[in-house]
Nucleic acid binder design. Structure first.
Lengths: 143, 143
DNA sequence: TAATTTAATTGTAACCATTACAATCCGGTA
DNA sequence: TACCGGATTGTAATGGTTACAATTAAATTA
């Protein structure tokens, strides 16, 4: 349990969200797996610890955490909602070949267009798609 | 039929994609409705012209046009895939209250992070969420 | 501690956008 | 006209997500 995790716990206490065993494990999983997991992945991995765990609980918990602003919902493409612990500004790069999602640093705040001065911006997302270095080299090997 | 539409036709000819009556109407609809429509919206509107039109045809056509690079798939949130004719670089702002998607100009090319120098970037997306001016003023009216 | 109330979890069924697939239709060609 | 290949259509299947009611756990009160 690193400092980040403690901070999350504290934030939940402030926002009056009770932390059950299941919710704790889900939150713990997200802090330890920054791989932008799907509900399916979370479900498979946590079932080992909590055999009775239900997917509905995972959906409920992620919704609560997202509403509390602790978790970010990533929907680069349909049929594959992924979740991420909210950290500092970064963009997401999805490899079209292997499907892996990479984080990359980007100063999103620097790109507030003046055209949106009359809008209230709550959330900013930068999604790139393409090929990751590993898949690029694989393609070259085949040639 | 403006110049843009003619250009699209030409591009399709180059890419050897035949233009049936249905495909022509769908493409025409997209060039005339820059509201980022869903398949449902396209279906409802075009049914007036083509009573026998099927949703499968719309899905097929949009997939072909997207693969050809003429149409951009917008997935800001799950369960609501939207489509857009590809134009110059711009970001999308979705109002969390009324659901409208607004375009705003942004120089996406200027924000290529050096960390992605070993990646091949095929597609860049900038999605913002928040409240549009109209919904903001409505909230103020209620107060 | 026991009883009571409230919230969280679970499993099943429903939902709904998208896709798969087979049958039909249409346009061009010999 | 007959044929062929691609486009369209309608229906059924898919699968991630949500709704809902029952069960369980936790918190509160006496």
């Amino acid at each position: 349990m690193d400092a980040t995790f403690e901070n999350l716990m504290q934030e939940l206490k402030i926002k009056n969200i009770s932390l059950s065993h299941q919710r704790l494990k889900i939150l713990e999983y997200l802090t330890q797996n920054h791989c932008h997991p799907t509900v399916e992945q979370i479900f498979i991995d946590l079932q080992k610890d909590i055999p009775t765990l239900s997917k509905t609980t995972i959906y409920n918990t992620l919704r609560i955490l997202a509403e509390a602003g602790l978790v970010k919902v990533i929907t680069i493409e349909d049929k594959e909602t992924r979740y991420d612990i909210v950290t500092e500004n970064h963009g997401h790069f999805k490899c079209e070949s292997c499907g892996t999602i990479f984080d990359f640093p980007i100063d999103i705040d620097s790109l507030i267009p003046e055209d949106l001065s009359t809008f209230k911006i709550n959330d900013k997302n930068v999604y790139f798609k393409g090929l990751c270095p590993r898949c690029l080299s694989n393609i070259n090997d085949i040639k």
